[in-house]
Simulated scan of single mutants.
Amino acid sequence: MKKFLKTVCLFSLPLLLLGIGFEYSLRRVPNPFRFKRYLLEEKGGQIKTMIIGSSVAGYGIDPSCLPDSTYNLAISGQWFRYNEAQLEKYIDSLPHLKNIIWGIAYQAFWEDEYESGVFYQDSKHDAQIAYYSIYMDISFDRNLIHRSELLSAGKICVEKWSKHYLQHEKTMCCDSLGLDHKYDLSEKEEDEKKWLNAIPRSIKMHTALDNEKAERIYQQNIQRMHAVAKLCHDRGVKLYLVIPPTYKMYYENVDEGQLQRMFLAIREVADKWDNVSAYDYFKDNRFVADDFYDGNHLTSDVGAVKFGNILREDIFKE
Rank of each mutant, 00 (worst) to 15 (best):
E252K: 11
E159Q: 14
N309D: 11
Q86Y: 00
L166C: 14
G257F: 06
Y279W: 11
L15C: 14
G53T: 05
I134P: 02
T207V: 13
Y293R: 04
I129D: 03
G53D: 04
N143M: 08
G19N: 06
L151K: 07
Y183V: 04
H146G: 09
D184W: 01
P200V: 12
R34V: 09
F282H: 04
Y59P: 11
I20A: 10
G53L: 06
F292S: 03
L264A: 13
I91H: 03
I310E: 03
C157P: 00
R27T: 05
T299K: 07
E42H: 15
E23Q: 07
V228N: 03
N31G: 07
R312P: 02
R147Y: 13
G303C: 10
E192R: 06
H146M: 06
E252M: 15
K283Q: 03
I52F: 02
H96G: 08
F33N: 07
K3F: 10
R34G: 12
Q219I: 07
R235N: 02
E212D: 14
G60F: 07
L177H: 05
T7Y: 00
L150E: 06
K188R: 15
I91W: 00
A74M: 05
I266N: 04
L15E: 09
H164L: 13
E159T: 12
L94R: 05
L298V: 14
W110M: 03
A108C: 10
A270H: 05
I310H: 01
L179V: 01
E23G: 02
W102L: 15
G44L: 05
F80I: 06
K6L: 14
F287Y: 15
I101G: 05
V242A: 00
I52A: 04
L10Q: 01
H297E: 04
Q46D: 10
E88P: 03
S54Y: 00
E149M: 10
K170P: 09
K306D: 03
R224F: 09
K213T: 15
I91L: 08
G236R: 02
Q128H: 06
M50H: 00
Y120L: 07
V302K: 11
F35G: 07
L209D: 10
G117V: 13
S76G: 15
D280H: 05
S69H: 08
L87K: 00
A214Q: 13
Q223N: 12
Y59C: 06
E159W: 04
K160L: 14
D234I: 05
R147P: 02
Q46N: 09
D294L: 09
K98E: 14
E84C: 04
M1K: 10
K3Q: 13
K194A: 13
I217D: 00
E215T: 14
S300D: 09
I217Y: 01
V276R: 11
Y106P: 07
R261Y: 09
E84H: 01
C173W: 10
E189G: 02
K48A: 08
N197R: 09
V242G: 00
S300I: 11
V118C: 06
A85E: 07
H96S: 13
S54W: 00
V228Y: 00
E215H: 05
G53Q: 02
L231D: 01
F35E: 13
D301Y: 01
K306E: 11
G60M: 10
R201G: 11
Y114R: 11
I222P: 02
E149D: 05
N211M: 09
D301F: 01
I61C: 05
D122S: 15
Y38D: 11
Y59Q: 06
V305G: 04
Q219E: 15
A74F: 01
G308P: 02
I266F: 01
D234F: 04
D191N: 12
